[in-house]
Write a protein that binds this DNA or RNA. Structure first.
Lengths: 224, 224
DNA sequence: TTCCGCTTTCGTACTATGTATGGTAACGTC
DNA sequence: GACGTTACCATACATAGTACGAAAGCGGAA
């Protein structure tokens, strides 16, 4: 199970906080956050359960840690560069990363203590907006708005009841009964006439919303 | 503990799916979602643990159910009425309700099967937008945008690291070290010069973002 | 009243999980 | 080689969800 080690030299498989967190992310990615238990984590690490407690205080600390790990995957906007391009790049990164680790979205609500990567991230966003000429007030506005949209979009994507896959892959219409139901006429109409239409992908809504927001924010800059 | 019952008449405390879910919401509101266990729930219902399984398939079903219960608290937009007023009213309701039951935000990600209240809700939103004159395409855009913002804002509020309470009530500055740190200069500046300033409340950002979004959506209507 | 069958509630017990407590093994240093 | 420090682990306990099947309450039929 463990690796060979030579005099004073560990060849591999040395535990560390970083390895614990990385592996925890991998486990959650694979089986959802519910699959992340101390025991599965230890197994994946090739180690016995109690060993992980040498590197982490408790499971809560692991959750805090992996959320911060996820944040570290998000691309940092470059302070001083064109703010729209940077904000767009970052927003797309948020969506991609939170899509890859959708369990992290659910963890956000209940984790009020940000880690270093999270702070570094926020710092870069604020810096980019400020250096673009936004006032402190407008920076706060823009920051809350862009993040709300990005997180909320990721949250919606994670909980989508119908996905292209379902609809296409599933021979039988998926819960069509639910939507075709007369109880929800507008929904039924939108689903049949728009959402399930060939070209439609919910993910495309991201760019629409983001552009609308960035345009409107941009407008406040030139007025100012 | 249980109530008196007369011949054929139960005076109170009869279990039911509705009562189970209501109580579950109450328990989660009080102690967080972590406090919601079958045993605490049963206790609160004045019943033994296994009794709740007569009304619910399993704990997952309870979680699905309470999320739908939360949605039922959100005010429905009135189809046909002034869409901006209705959307604003609904968005505020979303924020209020999700603020009251912030554990529900974390549950959303992982619960792709909406309940009846949720569907009714979405139906009303879609109907309101459609009857306001938005095309199907624009309705889909607007719907995704408004909801992303609302959910995301609630999510951010739930995970705010600094709250007026903390800052005011806590004699000792709360983790001021974190923010004053030179590592995060822009953040430190924004915190000290804006966020902790007397008049500032994060919750006010909601109206800014919402107005910006509604204005921009409105503009597409008149152009059309 | 007694019996019966249905609905509702519960007792017991098994498995999984987080983790407290205190080992034990490995390793660098003298 | 002895020893303190670091890294890992064995055991055990409290708490979780819930399978399984029994019991208790009820309305009506006999």
């Amino acid at each position: 199970m463990t690796e060979v080690k030579r005099t004073g030299q560990h060849v591999r498989s040395r535990l560390s906080r970083a390895r614990v967190l990385q592996t925890a992310v991998a486990v959650a990615d694979q089986g959802g956050i519910g699959a992340l238990t101390i025991r599965t984590l230890a197994q994946e690490l090739g180690v016995k359960p109690m060993s992980v407690y040498y590197y982490v205080l408790n499971k809560e600390a692991i959750l805090d840690g992996i959320v911060d790990n996820v944040f570290s995957e998000i691309v940092l906007p470059r302070v001083g560069a064109d703010w729209r391009a940077e904000m767009r790049r970052r927003a797309h990164s948020v969506r991609t990363v939170l899509g890859r680790h959708s369990w992290a979205i659910g963890l956000l609500e209940s984790r009020p203590r940000p880690g270093p990567a999270t702070l570094r991230h926020h710092d870069a966003v604020l810096g980019t907006l400020r250096s673009a000429g936004f006032s402190r007030e407008m920076t706060a506005h823009a920051y809350a708005l862009i993040d709300s949209f990005s997180y909320g979009f990721a949250l919606q994507e994670a909980s989508l009841p119908f996905e292209a896959q379902h609809i296409v892959a599933d021979g039988s219409e998926p819960d069509a009964t639910l939507f075709t139901d007369d109880q929800y006429p507008h929904m039924a109409a939108m689903v049949s006439e728009h959402y399930v239409q060939p070209g439609y992908r919910f993910s495309d809504e991201f760019d629409f919303g983001l552009n609308l927001i960035l345009d409107a924010l941009d407008a406040t800059l030139s007025v100012d």
